[in-house]
Design a protein around this nucleic acid. Structure first.
Length: 814
DNA sequence: AACCTGCCTG
DNA sequence: CAGGCAGGTT
């Protein structure tokens, strides 16, 4: 075991020491255990991190096979493009376009998570791009404006590289608007001929690009090669990992990135990977691991994407509503736009269709002229804003052209509104997502009230023209409904891979789950939360198919179960700039840490008796829950009851113990202090038993007994101290302190009548303790065992009513 | 080895 | 309550 995590090791040692005081234990073994635990934790953390990164990269890697890698720059270098292309009277137009692009880009930049949007946009663009495809590969610089957003699939690194390069040499990364030589010329010509018309068309195109994902690929090859390599490596690794996931990770994922495909790195289960002893190592590890969860996350990401798409659609709708003028002129420009659209046919699955269709129809309705005007106004506004802003990302300063604004003054307000609206919408969406993610992970996975995971279906509402206020809420709410989380750009934090080694979660997580929980299975299943098994339910086929995203678009680095948590994320302040990259790192860490903790727990104990149900606070009936359940199930690899995984389908059988079960167990304790496992099965017939459940129930009763005996001893000693000498004086009645204490513990609501028999047993127990203490037997470390033997024989029959799943109601109603 | 139990700790 | 461990039993 690595020596890292010495802290946790020490702490554990200390803990142990305490334990050792009472019982002789071998330090060696203890130490080993502690070390192991620590190692596991660290590994988990690393893994989680890797997962996050992987998720971020998923987009990139995803598209790799295709021409996608060539683009990506587009997003980053909105400005660069602008510079390249227009110079003539079309300048205003170009500016507008630039602005628009810039906006899009800036969003991306500002919000790493924006990639999602990009993806969405890309998907939408899919159709548009068909015609242009051939050109794409050839033109390095000219490639049509694959809008930055679209290429978003791009890895963060690529984006960065692109942006940088763009600044230095705009040509390299084509500006979205920069037309390829041939195309550009054509446009200019036409513009000269029909200036106004051209303008309109362009604006429309731009808008279209904005609204429909700019899935165009920008053929920038020079973009971060390093990332590319990493990505490739990761992909390979992923494939390898797909192999045997059962294998322990100890040796898994060797740092060497390029691993032969034959090799197998256990994928998600076996989270215990050795900890990175050095940063380098950790780095490589992360790279390797990042791919591990790709598949899983992919599915989750799909869901996220869907939501995002919906939102985008709504935005688009809103946009169109604002400019609901009708015009047909945009077609001639279509081919220009076509460039923008990347041929995503290959990548975007069926899902892209709906978006595309929609975009086509909507776009046709637009009035180019109107659009142009609006665009101008918007541009002007942005230019103003840009002043203050410095246009940090842009290498060029645009907008602000003297003649631009005035003409569209009448539309200025509208344009402004539009710009603001769009901006805010995007911002808020991104913020929301990020907040949600953070919140979810920051939150200890405790059983949450059965709030239901909001249904994916979006509310019919649309954005009104004045969306800022209430509409935002709508949007936010929708976001909140996301089961998924958007992950901060992994690349941003990639460089500084903090290894939160000492962050093991030490806090016990509640095993009890709200109704309909799945039981947890521990250890053996060490299957990572990332879902070693890809349970069918994890892949809502409906979603994926409809989505039309290429599977890899987004990955969800986090375990599904977490997603099941109700999102209570507050709506992030849309306005406030998004911390962006800076933020991504910490968030990622937190998330990963959380994940790690959970996973650690999952894989920890050799003690089968404990369940980590806490991990699956799912919400009944919700989609998320289903997912969570399945996942959890899968995680408990060795469960004996893998068979009927459909607790829901069925009747009353649940997979987890609920608070009501706990309450019931407590009441049962009044009758039976030492229930056998068989007895428990009989009395908890509404629970699907497995080792975890059984162990948990047994543990409950063990805890009950513990409390019971402690109370007995306490009161016995107290009585002795009070001068009681005769055992006869000792008894437990309903008005004594001892009874109150016990009743409070097992029957807090006091809605159950404690059986007389229990009082008798309690009295006997108290007397046993009394006698033993008086006799000085308590000097023997195991002096209580004799008492236990006596008491265990005093169990009485538990009333039949307890066998009913609804016994609580029946009992309490009486 | 698997399981159960008790103890300690958080 | 739950986690974790040691010890005992089968």
């Amino acid at each position: 075991m690595p020596d890292h995590d010495s802290d946790s090791f020490l702490s554990r040692q200390t803990k142990r020491r305490r334990v050792d005081i009472g019982v002789k234990r071998t330090v060696g073994s203890t130490a080993a255990n502690a070390a192991a635990a620590a190692a596991t934790t660290s590994a988990d953390i690393a893994h989680a991190k890797a997962a996050i990164f992987g998720a971020m990269n998923s987009l990139n890697s995803h598209h790799h096979g295709s021409d996608a890698d060539s683009m990506d720059c587009s997003m980053v270098q909105p400005h660069g493009h602008a510079g390249v292309v227009t110079a003539t009277n079309s300048e205003s137009k170009s500016n507008v376009l630039r602005k628009l692009l810039k906006r899009a880009n800036s969003y991306e930049d500002a919000f790493p998570g924006a990639t999602i949007i990009s993806q969405l946009l890309k998907s939408n663009m899919a159709k548009n791009g068909r015609g242009e495809r051939g050109e794409r590969g050839d033109r390095e610089d000219g490639g049509f404006p694959r809008s930055g957003l679209s290429s978003g699939g791009s890895e963060a690194p690529q984006e960065d590289a692109c942006s940088n390069s763009s600044q230095d040499s705009p040509q390299e990364c084509l500006s979205p608007f920069g037309h390829p030589p041939a195309l550009g010329a054509f446009d200019l010509e036409r513009l000269n001929d029909e200036h106004l018309r051209a303008k309109r068309a362009r604006v429309e195109n731009i808008i279209r690009g904005m609204s429909h994902s700019p899935g165009v690929v920008v053929p920038t090859r020079h973009i971060g090669e390093r990332d590319h390599e990493l990505e490739q490596c990761g992909r390979e690794r992923e494939r390898e990992m797909d192999g045997d996931r059962d294998r322990e990770m100890e040796m898994n994922c060797p740092p060497q990135l390029p691993s032969p495909r034959g090799e197998v790195c256990s994928r998600e289960n076996k989270r215990k990977q050795r900890l990175p002893q050095q940063q380098q190592q950790s780095f490589t590890q992360l790279v390797c691991q990042r791919k591990e969860q790709k598949h899983e996350e992919r599915r989750q990401l799909k869901l996220q994407l869907e939501d995002m798409q919906k939102q985008l659609r709504q935005l688009q709708e809103k946009f169109f509503q604002i400019y609901d003028s009708t015009d047909d002129s945009e077609h001639d420009l279509s081919h220009d736009l076509g460039n923008m659209s990347e041929d995503s046919a290959g990548r975007s699955d069926a899902g892209g269709d709906d978006r595309t269709d929609r975009s086509d129809n909507e776009m046709s309705d637009l009035d180019p002229g109107h659009f142009l005007d609006r665009a101008r106004a918007l541009l002007q506004e942005q230019a103003l804003l840009a002043e203050g802003d410095k246009l940090r990302r842009e290498g060029l300063v645009w907008g602000k052209g003297p003649g631009q604004g005035p003409s569209s003054s009448m539309h200025h307000a509208e344009g402004k509104l539009l710009a603001e609206t769009l901006k805010q919408e995007l911002n808020s969406a991104m913020n929301q997502v990020v907040d949600t993610v953070v919140k979810v992970f920051a939150k200890p996975p405790r059983p949450t009230p059965p709030q239901v995971f909001p249904p994916l279906p979006m509310p019919p509402e649309r954005f009104g023209v004045n969306v800022k206020g209430p509409n935002f809420h709508t949007a936010n709410q929708r976001l909140q409904c996301f089961g998924d989380v958007v992950i901060p750009n992994p690349l941003d934090s990639f460089g500084s891979i903090p290894v939160p080694g000492a962050n093991d979660q030490t806090e016990a997580l509640p095993l009890v789950v709200r109704k309909t929980q799945t039981e947890h299975h521990q250890q053996s299943s060490a299957v990572g939360a990332h879902g070693g098994h890809q349970h069918p339910s994890l892949h809502p086929s409906s979603l994926s198919t409809s989505m039309g995203f290429s599977p890899p678009s987004f990955r969800h680095p986090f375990p599904l179960p977490l997603m099941g948590y109700p999102f209570q994320s507050p709506v992030g302040p849309p306005s406030g700039g998004y911390p962006g990259k800076d933020r991504s790192s910490p968030d990622s860490m937190d998330l990963s840490r959380e994940t790690t903790s959970l996973r650690t727990k999952m894989s920890s104990g050799h003690h089968v008796g404990h369940h980590h149900r806490s991990f699956s606070p799912t919400n009944p009936g919700s989609t998320a829950e289903g997912l969570s359940l399945s996942l959890i199930k899968s995680e408990c690899g060795d469960m004996s009851d893998m068979n009927d995984i459909s607790p829901y389908s069925g009747s009353t059988i649940q997979e987890g113990l609920s608070p009501n079960h706990l309450k019931k167990a407590k009441l049962m304790f009044f009758y039976a202090r030492y229930p056998s496992s068989n007895m428990l099965k009989i009395f908890f017939s509404d629970v699907k038993f497995n080792r975890c459940i059984t162990s948990q129930l047994i543990k409950w009763f063990s805890n009950f007994r513990e409390f019971y005996y402690i109370q007995m001893e306490k009161f016995a000693r107290q009585a002795i101290n009070d001068g009681v000498t005769g055992v006869e004086e000792m008894s437990v009645s309903r008005d004594c302190e001892l009874y109150r204490a016990l009743n409070m513990h097992y029957n807090k609501a006091n809605d159950f009548e404690v059986p007389e028999l229990f009082l008798e047993v309690a009295t006997i127990t108290l007397r046993e303790f009394f006698n033993a203490i008086v006799a000085g037997k308590d000097v023997d470390p195991s002096w209580k065992k004799a008492i236990y033997k006596v008491i265990c024989k005093l169990d009485s029959e538990v009333p039949e009513v307890f066998k009913s799943p609804n016994c609580l109601q029946e009992l309490l109603h009486e």
